[in-house]
Amino acid sequence: MIGVSRRHMMNGHFDLAALGMLVAVAETGGFTAASARLGRTQSAISVRIQDLESQLGHKLLERSRRGVTPTDAGERLIAHARRLLAVEREALADLGGETPTGRLRIGVPDDYMDAYLRPLIARFAVEHPKVELEVRCDISKRIEPALKAGELDLAVVTQDPQRPLGEMLRREPLIWVAARGHRPELQETLPLALFSEGCRARPRILAALNSAGRAYRLVFSCSHTSGVLSAVEGGFCVTAMTESAVPPSLRRLGPAEDLPPLFELTVGLIMAPHPGLAAQRFADALREEMSAFRLAA
């Protein structure tokens, strides 16, 4: 920890430009990409972040072979920084008479849509009546190239663990579930419902079963949550899904049912280059929603 008095920290004021640089480095994964985004030199960004670290007495970023990642203190500051920067943008837009208009195209897997985006989208539509919302629900593997091709303005995806794109919003534990009143997990060969091939969790789920030596058979495959849920609620199979998306009709399974522990998925936000005001406002609202969701969890 960098030596600095608590009194000095409490009496200081944040440099919003430096906070913006810190957020850019965290979102892009490095100083080079942040430099390209902000139009500032890497050395200038580095100096401003070092000044922040000296002001607060905390190291904010860690450099590793995988890139640049926030420390625990950095993660906490970034959450505050995003809110401060959003307020600054809102104030500038308000005084400048700037109102989001036009079409906003959002890509999202439908399990995330059901878990925490539906209320946000409804609220955003009411608060920004001049914005035409277009939502595409699909698997992350197809959403990412659609955004790259210019078909979407922003996307919420399950990040590829080997090649994560975008800004990480939250971690989602994956858990086993089955219908209440049914015991398909007692079958010697586990009947399984999963998302279609292309789902990033699917090969890892199957690998977990194989590593545990648990026999299984795939009895249902679908590209949408509603289809998988219908199969599981019918009582003849189990599935694995994100914890926040589990409906009351299902019960959780685990080691007691001879099922292996699973893993966490990381939910990411990807923005198109040069996002418009509507996309920026939605991204700010999404970060705020995710922050509140984490606190409530």
Rank of each mutant, 00 (worst) to 15 (best):
I2V: 14
V4S: 03
N11G: 07
L16A: 08
A17R: 11
M21S: 10
A24S: 14
G29S: 00
A36R: 14
L38S: 08
T41M: 05
T41P: 03
S43D: 10
A44R: 04
A44T: 12
R48T: 04
D51C: 08
L52T: 03
Q55P: 01
D72W: 04
A73N: 06
R76A: 15
L77P: 00
H80F: 13
A81C: 07
R82V: 07
R83M: 08
E90C: 02
L92C: 12
L95H: 15
T99M: 14
P109N: 08
D110K: 12
M113V: 00
L117V: 04
R123I: 01
H128W: 10
E132T: 13
I139V: 09
P145V: 12
E151Q: 14
D153N: 06
D153A: 06
P164F: 07
L174K: 07
L186K: 13
E188Y: 10
P191G: 01
A208D: 02
L209M: 08
A212T: 05
A215V: 03
Y216D: 01
C222I: 03
S223N: 08
V232S: 01
G235P: 06
P248I: 07
S249C: 03
L250V: 01
P260W: 11
F263R: 00
L277G: 11
A278C: 05
R281G: 00
R287A: 11
E288F: 04
E288T: 10
A296Y: 05
A297H: 06
